[in-house]
């Protein structure tokens, strides 16, 4: 019901992000989703990738500190107010959304996806399923 997100610590210096995306590109890692959170003196790059194991190995070898967390990859219904319906479902279930961001890779399906970091994954999944809103699994990432 959930997918794995990698969070990478970045120093807030020019080129830090570019250096990290460079490492991923060199190792032919395909980023499916990406967002950057910034504090005054550091940043956290949050990424969803096709190959979790390879990515964490590559990052570790390149000296990056990172952590892995569970997030939801939600298929946004292809109709007006689609995102609104998702948020409605989560609000009704009283699930707190910590942050969300857009998914890049939907080459074949044509659907829109978003990544949700929520306080309670199980409750959120149940609430979405009850409204017929689909979430993607880790294995599906490779095919997207």
């Amino acid at each position: 019901m959930s997918i794995k997100q990698i969070s990478v610590f970045l120093e807030n210096v020019p080129g830090a992000l570019y250096a990290m995306t460079g490492v991923l590109a060199q190792n032919k890692i395909d980023m499916r989703a990406f967002t950057l959170a910034e504090a005054s003196d550091f940043g956290i790059a949050r990424i969803i990738v096709d190959d979790l194991y390879k990515t964490t190995t590559v990052l570790k070898d390149a000296g990056y500190v990172h952590s892995i967390s569970d997030v939801l990859g939600v298929v946004i219904p292809d109709s007006p107010g689609g995102l609104n319906r998702v948020l409605q479902a989560l609000t009704d279930a009283q699930v707190n959304v910590e942050y969300m961001y857009v998914f890049l890779g939907h080459k074949t399906t044509g659907s829109a996806y978003m990544i949700f970091k929520v306080a309670d994954i199980a409750a959120a999944s149940a609430a979405l399923a009850a409204r017929g809103i689909r979430t993607i699994e880790q294995e599906e990432l490779e095919k997207l």
Binding site: F42, S67, S69
Partner: peptide, 13 residues
């Protein structure tokens, strides 16, 4: 920053 001290939670850091 160390792996032990790092978390995805910005507020915690």
């Amino acid at each position: 920053m160390t792996p032990e001290m790092f978390t995805d939670n910005m507020g915690e850091i």
